[in-house]
Simulated scan of single mutants.
Amino acid sequence: MTFSHLKPTVPKCWLFAASGAMWSAVGIMMGATAIGWLSDGTMGRGMAYALAGLILSLPSVRWGFGRIAQKNIRRLRRLPDRGCFFAFQAWKSYLIVMVMIALGVFLRNSSIPKHFLAVAYTAIGVALIVGSFYYYRHLARLIRTASRRGGQRHLLS
């Protein structure tokens, strides 16, 4: 007995949209958490920590999340035109996400001052948001290419 008929299959473009949306949502959530932590202190100190997070986000995008997004885009491009919705990230990435969630829970409940955690949350949140645009850019290319060929309807359904 196989369960392949239960697999939610979608056109490949939805995998790029799902990846971008997930990265954006997590990045926004992390940024909002950091803002909440930084708004408890003085304005000048909060801005300094936010700036430190923004500065750290640059190498995080360049050598971290940007490379991960590009690697995932290459993987998604090799998939068939229709695939399982949950393939928007590799199975190993699901394990990494679980570890990162556990680490986040641990850090939020640790004795580390929240303004220091806000720097890391800002850096990672901004890097995720910027990384999500790699997916959106590729999705836009797919849609443009399909519309030139007259296959936009096939691309989205």
Rank of each mutant, 00 (worst) to 15 (best):
I35V: 15
G27C: 13
I101G: 02
I124T: 12
G83A: 14
K114S: 07
I28Q: 03
W14K: 03
M29H: 12
V10P: 02
Y94S: 12
S111L: 09
A48D: 00
I96K: 03
S111E: 07
A90F: 04
R108S: 13
W63T: 10
L155Y: 13
R153Q: 12
D40A: 15
F3E: 12
D81N: 05
G31V: 05
T145A: 06
I96L: 14
Q152T: 14
I129F: 14
I73M: 01
R75H: 12
P80K: 05
K12I: 00
L51R: 06
A21Q: 03
V126S: 14
F116H: 13
M22F: 07
S19D: 07
P59R: 01
R144L: 01
G131R: 03
G104H: 04
A90K: 02
T145G: 00
F86V: 13
P113E: 09
I143E: 02
A48K: 05
P113D: 06
G150M: 07
R77C: 07
A127W: 02
L156T: 13
K92Y: 12
W14H: 09
M1H: 13
P11L: 00
A120C: 08
W63L: 13
A52K: 04
G20A: 10
R45A: 13
P59A: 00
L58E: 01
Y134F: 12
K114I: 00
G150W: 12
V130Q: 10
L117K: 13
S110N: 03
G150N: 08
L54T: 10
I112L: 08
L95I: 13
L155M: 14
L6D: 06
G41S: 11
H138S: 00
